[in-house]
């Protein structure tokens, strides 16, 4: 239970960012802990416990969305050629965490999940592609689009 108490909030935040529902995120965290405890022998070093648990909860959260058929957009994600460049247009904006969080939450799942995994959970584009079963180029493009949408939202807030 010590491990649970130490990591529950961290895992809850990770799961909530993906699932966006408090009750479902709590259940998913519990599922992840059970899964982790059942597979604890596979953990190579105690030092890796935090990141290992994080990976498990991310897997469980995505599995949850798959089961709830909330990852339908994966079937609609075509293999996009890498033509979309990342032109940074709003480098001069001063950001606030609360506003950025709100803006991330308004994004469609297909952009939000990739943004969260890449920018907050430190997944590489390749890892996200493997996790979601997409081409790496598609993930890169969705990421660039998500970032553009995010900036657009934050910029429109400044104008209003």
């Amino acid at each position: 239970m010590q491990v649970y108490l130490m990591y529950k909030d961290m895992l809850y935040n990770v799961s909530y960012r993906i699932i966006k529902n408090t009750q479902d995120a709590q259940d998913t965290v519990h599922d992840a802990f059970i899964k982790a405890f059942q597979n604890i022998s596979k953990l190579e070093s105690d030092l890796n416990l935090g990141p290992w648990l994080k990976r498990i909860v991310i897997n469980c959260s995505l599995d949850f969305l798959r089961q709830k058929k909330k990852l339908g957009w994966l079937q609609e994600s075509y293999e996009l050629p890498e033509t979309e460049e990342d032109i940074d247009t709003y480098e001069d904006i001063t950001f606030k965490v609360e506003e950025v969080k709100k803006a991330i939450n308004t994004l469609k799942d297909k952009y939000r999940i990739i943004i969260v995994l890449y920018l907050i959970e430190d997944y590489s584009h390749r890892e996200i592609a493997e996790q979601l079963g997409l081409k790496e180029s598609t993930v890169r493009n969705q990421y660039v689009r998500g970032k553009r949408l995010l900036k657009q939202q934050l910029q429109s807030k400044l104008i209003v």
């Binding site: 809850y12 965290v29 480098e91 950025v100 920018l119 907050i120």
Partner: peptide
């Protein structure tokens, strides 16, 4: 500061939910 850099640098501030 770029948005990317801002999020990466303030990552911990995004963890504000408590079970």
């Amino acid at each position: 500061m770029s948005l990317e850099k801002f999020i990466k640098e303030h990552k911990t501030a995004f963890d504000d939910q408590v079970m």
